[in-house]
Amino acid sequence: MISVAIVDDQPLIRAGLRMVVESQPDLRLVGEGSDGVDAVTLAREHHPEVMLLDVRMPRVDGIQAIPGVLAAGGVTRVIVLTTFDLDEYVYAALQAGAAAFLLKDAGPEYIIAAIRQVAVGDLLLAPALTRRLVEQYVARPQPRGDGPLAQLTSRERDVLVAIADGLSNVEIGARLHVSEGTVKTHVSRILFKLDLRDRVQAVIAAYELGLVAPGGG
């Protein structure tokens, strides 16, 4: 069973998310909060596997809370709750260590899928949101010579591009005609070679290193 915490300063949002979580037999709500202080406290006391975390909140906002949440035992993965008009905050959340993003108007099925996907260590990066974030808040990249990319094989570069496109391991395997296990191996090697924490950082790196161009297809 996946333990979940909800942190949002709007009671109606919390109530809606609570109903979604409690409707699933494999999800268990362990706590709720209304600001970043509560988020860190919940992480320390309950160690939820997944935390749904709002951005704009009183006292301590979601972005400021992420490092404390991640340091409170190392088991909680954060899904940032956002809207498109908060893009700059979401990019900051990426840098802080958020694992995924969820638009507040997402349907229940999407929320449930996001929680399950993040709980197993994967990420949920909506391609449109990811591309918009990078286009607006990462300076247009200038390739750094061969640099870090020289460490990657041609196939690893293909996988990195697919990650930047927001594809899951299964989807990458289908695109490149390889098994999911092979994709996982490539992803692990990419993260190791480029000294990246997770797939979110891999998306940023793909743009910053010039492997993917903002606005490209």
Rank of each mutant, 00 (worst) to 15 (best):
A100S: 12
S188E: 09
L176M: 12
P143G: 10
R175T: 08
A113I: 02
D165Y: 10
V170W: 09
A114T: 15
S154F: 13
Y137I: 09
R189G: 00
L123F: 05
A113N: 13
A174T: 09
K193L: 10
V178Y: 04
F101Q: 04
R155F: 11
R189T: 07
A100E: 01
A113L: 11
R132Q: 14
T153D: 13
A106E: 06
L124Q: 04
D122E: 15
A139V: 15
E109I: 11
T182L: 12
P127R: 15
G121C: 09
K104Y: 08
Q117I: 01
A126R: 15
R144V: 07
I112L: 13
V138C: 13
G166P: 06
G181A: 11
G145V: 07
R144Q: 12
Q151D: 03
Q142W: 06
A100P: 02
A98T: 05
R175A: 10
Y137Q: 08
A100N: 01
R157W: 07
L129C: 06
K104G: 11
A99N: 04
Q151A: 15
L123Q: 01
V120T: 07
R189F: 02
Y110V: 14
S168T: 15
L194C: 04
L133C: 08
R144E: 09
V183P: 01
R157C: 10
Q117C: 05
T185S: 08
I172L: 06
A106K: 06
R131Q: 15
G147V: 08
L124G: 01
E156P: 02
